[in-house]
Design a protein around this nucleic acid. Structure first.
Length: 322
DNA sequence: GAGATTTGACCCGT
DNA sequence: ACGGGTCAAATCTC
């Protein structure tokens, strides 16, 4: 389907994606009926489940298309030319953990999130960036800022979505064994914990800013989406020294954006085993669509338009899957 | 000077 | 051989 313009046509992946999207559409139809049924309980239990299923289907479809995606393409980014002098032998030590306990090996426990921000309330330190073949955007590598202090093995990879650059595909590896969640995130948790107990990411009030911590509202973009407009500072001047990066090196810059906190709230907390992101405030709903960029992701799909495909107006559920 | 990011190099798996 | 993940020297900002 036209969901993703990757050029994958009639491949097994696209076939699978089609099936998934068909399934998702069925669920959406049920959901729509439910929403128009007037007597939806406040809890939206059924709607939540349906929406989650729809999102899951779509996400898997996306993943399938990506996995089987086109092989043509974009040239790898050009790198700095190799220095004339060879690096000393001391430079390298074996990548002992990379394959064994590292992100790659932990693939089966990876949790994938698609969001408009890579913010999650944890403290991350960027340790690498890599141009990925067939991908327009580099992949950013982060590990827990407390890796050294607490041996926390949590890592994450952030990459801009091909389909919608304003969406970030965030893959988490490992679990946080530290308590490095930011105070702001903690506050957010407290705010409506009752609404999101099992949620990985929860959109609470992103304005929480204790101890001078910036509000958790930024994205990880390197390529200039709307948030980047405020990035007046050079790349390296972004974060304050005393506080480790709050998820994403651009954070210190992005937060200056005047975007209303509620409009596209940042995920403020990520815990390990969950799959759903929730927005509890109905006022956020329209903006959730923007967060998801549903229109952008699926706007040119076979569905006439996003509204016809799915109406999220009454839904206060956001997405993510693992 | 400390601590963070940048980025080419290195290494491993396929 | 290639792609991707990580390392670590260089660099930057405060």
């Amino acid at each position: 389907m036209a969901l993703i313009a990757t050029g994958a046509t009639a491949s097994p992946a696209s076939s699978m994606a089609s099936e998934l999207m068909a399934q998702g559409r069925e669920s959406a139809a049920v959901l729509e009926a439910l929403l128009h049924g007037a007597s939806l309980p406040p809890a939206h239990g059924g709607a939540h489940a349906l929406a989650a299923e729809i999102l899951r289907c779509c996400d898997r479809a996306l993943a399938a298309l990506r996995a089987g995606g086109d092989a043509e393409s974009s040239s790898p980014g050009t790198k700095r030319s190799k220095p004339a002098t060879a690096q000393p032998a001391t430079r390298r030590r074996r990548r002992a953990t990379a394959s064994g306990g590292g992100a790659a090996a932990a693939a089966e426990t990876a949790r994938v999130d698609r969001a408009r921000t890579s913010e999650d309330g944890f403290l991350w330190r960027k340790y690498g960036q890599k141009e990925i073949k067939n991908s327009k955007h580099p992949r950013l590598y982060y590990r827990c800022s407390y890796k050294d202090d607490h041996g926390c093995t949590a890592t994450k990879q952030v990459q801009q979505s091909e389909e919608d650059p304003s969406i970030y595909v965030i893959t988490y590896f490992g679990d946080h064994t530290c308590s490095c969640q930011t105070a702001a995130a903690m506050d957010d948790d407290d705010d409506d914990d009752e609404n999101s107990q099992h949620f990985v990411i929860h959109f609470g009030s992103a304005t929480a800013s204790r101890n001078g911590s910036p509000p958790l509202l930024y994205d990880d973009d390197d390529d200039g989406d709307v948030w980047r407009e405020t990035a007046a500072t050079p790349p390296s001047s972004r974060q304050s020294r005393s506080s480790p990066e709050v998820d994403g090196e651009e954070s210190g810059v992005k937060m200056s954006k005047e975007e209303p906190v509620d409009s596209c709230p940042a995920p403020s907390a990520v815990s390990s085993p969950a799959d759903v992101v929730s927005c509890s405030s109905p006022a956020m709903e329209p903006d959730l669509l923007r967060c998801l960029n549903w229109d952008d992701d699926f706007g040119d799909s076979s569905f006439v338009d996003a509204d016809e495909f799915m109406n999220f107006d009454e839904i206060d559920l956001f997405q993510i899957y693992s």
